[in-house]
């Protein structure tokens, strides 16, 4: 599913964010990526959806090498990957429904399919009754659920989340985790960078720890392993 071979990333300003990463993530896995701030977590995640291009090495997602991917093939590739951010990245002037439908509009789906799928995912994240609300009328947790709905609406095989619970209180964070659980149980691979110790330690899954741009730990049913 996802395979990184000897991936290095050095930013133009000289920061060496990744120093030789090798990893294999199987289809349907749930993976936490943990590590102190500035350890290369974000870069690791960004390389997976090709926001950053590795300096060296290869990243295979379903057989496609992102490191060699041509600029114009990136959009096609992104449609296979759902991305979720700490700050939701919703469009403030669009309603919940429109925000989710947006992901299908840009890939030129037919209106009929759009309507059906959007209502489906809104139902899944429990926001069917808020379809007409605007993002600023929603709580943080609800907004994150909208962004999750948007990321899964075109049924990508992989979901990549960069600290999705970072801005949420513990209780809401758990609600979000329930949705990720649900998505994962349906067969979607989930990669989640997180700082949330409670979640990692209670909902036990594979844990990859990154420090200084290297993988220092890779355990099935692992622990968060850091204080705070």
């Amino acid at each position: 599913m996802i395979e990184m071979k000897d991936v290095w990333k050095t930013y133009p300003n000289g920061v060496m964010a990744l120093n030789g990463i090798d990893i294999y993530i199987d289809k349907g896995e749930f993976v936490y990526v943990v590590g102190p701030s500035g350890a290369g977590k974000s870069t690791f995640v960004k390389c997976m959806y090709r926001e950053e291009k590795p300096t060296k090495g290869s990243i295979l997602i379903q057989g496609t090498d992102l490191a060699k991917l041509r600029e114009r093939h990136i959009p096609k590739m992104r449609r296979k990957i759902g991305v979720i951010f700490q700050d939701f990245k919703l469009l403030p002037k669009l309603t919940v429904y429109e925000n989710v439908a947006f992901a299908l509009e840009v890939i030129e789906e037919s209106p009929k399919v759009i309507r059906q799928r959007v209502m489906e995912v809104l139902d899944l994240v429990g926001l069917k009754n808020k379809a007409r609300s605007f993002p600023d009328e929603l709580s943080g947790g609800e907004q994150q659920r909208v962004s999750i709905a948007r990321s899964i609406v075109n049924h990508p095989p992989v979901i990549i989340a960069d600290e999705p619970t970072g801005n949420l209180d513990p209780e809401t964070a758990w609600e979000i985790m329930d949705i990720f659980k649900e998505i994962n149980e349906r067969g979607t691979t989930v990669v989640m960078a997180t700082h949330n110790k409670d979640i990692v330690n209670s909902f036990k899954k594979r844990v990859i720890a990154i420090e200084g741009g290297r993988i220092v730990r890779d355990e099935q049913k692992g622990e968060y392993g850091y204080e705070i």
Binding site: Y49, R72, P75, K76, M77, R78, R79, V83, K89, L91, F102, A103, V106, I107, E108, R150, S151, N154
Partner: peptide, 16 residues
Amino acid sequence: RKEIEIMKLVGATNGF
């Protein structure tokens, strides 16, 4: 620019 960024992340082509 936020709108453009999101469009790119959900897989819109540059032409679109």
